[in-house]
Design a protein around this nucleic acid. Structure first.
Lengths: 217, 217
DNA sequence: GTTGCTCTTTGACCCAGATCAAGCGCGGGG
DNA sequence: CCCCGCGCTTGATCTGGGTCAAAGAGCAAC
């Protein structure tokens, strides 16, 4: 990786700032260092669908493709580690290991996208919300194993509207379903971003997931 | 590729036969030679979502993953060209070119999956049908350039129910929307599988696609 | 404190698409 | 030839989630 060290640089973005517009020439690839970014598509009439959520360590960009296919937006303050595209591609052809690692990551993303297709096409609003929370919880848990006793809790890194765009719902429906899950004791809220999960199995059941497949966002 | 020639073999499946069950050990990778296969997920209660449509030349399988994540089913009689997984993986590590080609294909599939997420999350039933027909038409056209004069026509390789599973609809809605598009002169039908498209731009407009992005299935 | 944001919740109503339920058309087998 | 089965269409009705509208809740600037 020492050759990569030589060509890398950092870029910072403020919350709300657009990193890349769909259709732009993409002169770099990189990965998220800190903060959260989203990958979205928008139709002419404004309908929007989030197609990916980029958390720290996630890769951005497509070696071999000149223009971006989706909008990338920072939803929190964001730091990215970037490599100019050309040198990165050269390095990739000369270092097979990198292409293989990238293939592995891309296959994981593809599986995640396909899991998401099931959610978008067939799950109810309640199941969608439960799925989103459990996925965020799983990622959080795998990162810093934060659990107070056996009570799992997470911060939702997205506004209600962003969740709606991710889940193929409206923000009102997201709000209503979160309220409903709270009323039914599946989750509890402190503020409107912090969620506690008294019983993770209950939540997974609400999500309609067949057992604990290794879905990742 | 001559090394690949040495380890390849063929498998045939009848229409309706399952190629691989989700969760099965996957002892081979391969690609479709002829016929059509689908990649589907099913929830315990039977709700089904198709997450991929495999046409000739499409790759099946995941180097580096022991079990299948989705059901693969032959919807027509199917011939696949297979490679036992272990030798293929060995070959991949020793032949960088293969990993790179595979990465390219996987990135294309990822883009297609993300396009499909927009369809599933945000498009209306009519737009979904129009999108499906235009995508099949585009693939057909790129394969054998079949067009009588300037009238494009395609055979739908799927039943109404399979289309419904692909689009996140019910088969009744699929049928109704196809009838509606026919009544409005956007398409015409001969039998219930063969579609003619008098005006491809009109169809693309109905699909809600922002211009002619290179979506592939 | 007040003003003015943005984000969120909640209510009332509506509609696209699901569900339930007949029928139709056509190809294969007796 | 008729019957049967399967894929498809069409109608009637229902409903989950969208739409429109109003109001609370933080919170930063003044």
């Amino acid at each position: 990786m020492s050759q990569l060290e030589q060509i890398k640089y950092y870029r910072s973005f403020q919350a709300g700032q657009t990193v890349i517009w769909s259709g732009d020439r993409m002169e770099f690839v990189g990965s998220v260092v800190s903060g959260i970014a989203t990958l979205t598509q928008t139709m002419e009439d404004g309908r929007r669908q989030m197609v990916g959520l980029l958390l720290p360590s996630d890769f951005v960009g497509r070696p071999g493709r000149p223009v971006a296919a989706f909008d990338v937006t920072a939803t929190t303050d964001l730091v990215m580690c970037c490599f100019r595209k050309k040198p990165f591609e050269d390095l990739m052809t000369s270092t097979p290991h990198i292409a293989q690692r990238l293939l592995e990551m891309t296959l994981d993303e593809l599986d995640a996208a396909r899991e998401w297709m099931l959610l978008l096409g067939r799950k109810t609003a309640r199941e969608k919300i439960a799925s989103l929370i459990s996925i965020i919880a799983r990622r959080e848990a795998s990162l810093h194993m934060k659990r107070a006793k056996d009570m799992l809790s997470v911060d939702l890194p997205l506004t209600r509207e962003e969740m709606a765009d991710y889940l193929g719902l409206t923000l009102e429906t997201v709000s209503r379903q979160i309220s409903a899950l709270k009323k039914d004791g599946v989750i509890s809220l402190e503020g409107n971003r912090h969620v506690s999960i008294p019983d993770i199995d209950r939540l997974l059941e609400e999500a309609g997931d067949d057992s604990d497949g290794g879905m990742l966002v």
